[in-house]
């Protein structure tokens, strides 16, 4: 935190800092950053979590039940939204859901108290945007692969009266093209806003105790701290919900590509 003259910069947490290990890739220098570190941590944590559910026992233990709960949640969502064909896309949506969920939750860890700055990978539009573009690309590839040019009938909903088609089709097209942006932006904004809010409130807590009129500042600090507890709980909820929304919308978009309307 850049605590110059008592000021705490709530945007500092989103800074990407190099940790070394640079090499050149097509004219761009690629460095191992704190962002990459937290992605790797999320991947390793996820791997350990999944590994605990790999005992494949008939009567599962607690850990296995937890892992199977996640896999069952995603695969039932896929079959509910797409049908039996949805199971083909479960690995992708499951990877997406778990990666986003773990990045969200790891970014929420209160590691600041031991001097480590957690980095919320999903608070960067470059990350969420790429994930959204991957989903969108899968929709396009699957749609044109399965339906060919017939995929364009997606822009004409069932039962549209003929004279309405010239008006409806552009609207549908725009709403279709907006999908990757709204998908990526939603997650990025939710994460960024939540973390900024938490950092602003924690700045209030610190500045309140450092205030010249200590009794007034203490009141502000205590109230802010109570508010932070509530908002942290809310942010944990948001972390789960945003991962779910991303996976759900991806599955719905894939459904459009697989089944058209």
């Amino acid at each position: 935190m850049a605590a110059e003259s008592g000021k705490i910069d709530p945007m500092h947490q989103f800074e990407v800092t190099p940790l070394g290990g640079g090499f050149n890739l097509g004219g761009h220098e690629v460095l191992f950053t704190n962002s990459a570190l937290w992605m790797v941590i999320a991947a390793i944590t996820l791997g350990i979590f999944m590994w605990g559910g790999m005992r494949r026992k008939l009567i599962p233990g607690r850990w296995q039940v937890a892992v199977e709960g996640f896999t069952g949640f995603i695969s039932s969502m896929m079959t509910a939204n797409i049908g039996t064909e949805g199971r083909k896309y479960t690995p992708y949506v499951f990877s997406l859901f778990m990666f986003i969920l773990f990045c969200n939750l790891l970014g929420m860890l209160p590691l600041g108290v031991v001097g480590v700055h957690p980095f919320t990978v999903t608070s960067h539009i470059a990350i969420t945007g790429v994930l959204a573009l991957i989903s969108f690309a899968i929709v396009l590839v699957v749609g044109f692969w399965r339906h060919g040019l017939h995929f364009f009938s997606l822009f004409v909903p069932h039962g549209t009266p003929l004279p309405m088609i010239p008006i409806i089709a552009p609207i549908e097209f725009v709403s279709f093209m907006v999908r990757p942006f709204s998908l990526g932006l939603r997650l990025f904004v939710a994460m960024t806003a939540g973390h900024v809010l938490l950092k602003v409130l924690s700045g209030f807590v610190i500045n309140g105790f450092n205030a010249e009129t200590l009794w007034l500042g203490s009141i502000v600090s205590v109230l802010s701290f109570i508010l932070m507890i509530g908002i942290s709980a809310l942010e944990l909820l948001v972390a789960g919900i945003q991962a779910y929304v991303f996976a759900l919308l991806t599955s719905l978009y894939i459904n459009d590509a697989v089944n058209l309307h």
Binding site: S35, V121, A126
Partner: peptide, 14 residues
């Protein structure tokens, strides 16, 4: 400078 590293590591990890 860091967009390339972001994308590279995201793709690798994901």
């Amino acid at each position: 400078w860091y967009l390339a590293s972001q994308l590279f590591w995201l793709l690798v990890v994901f």
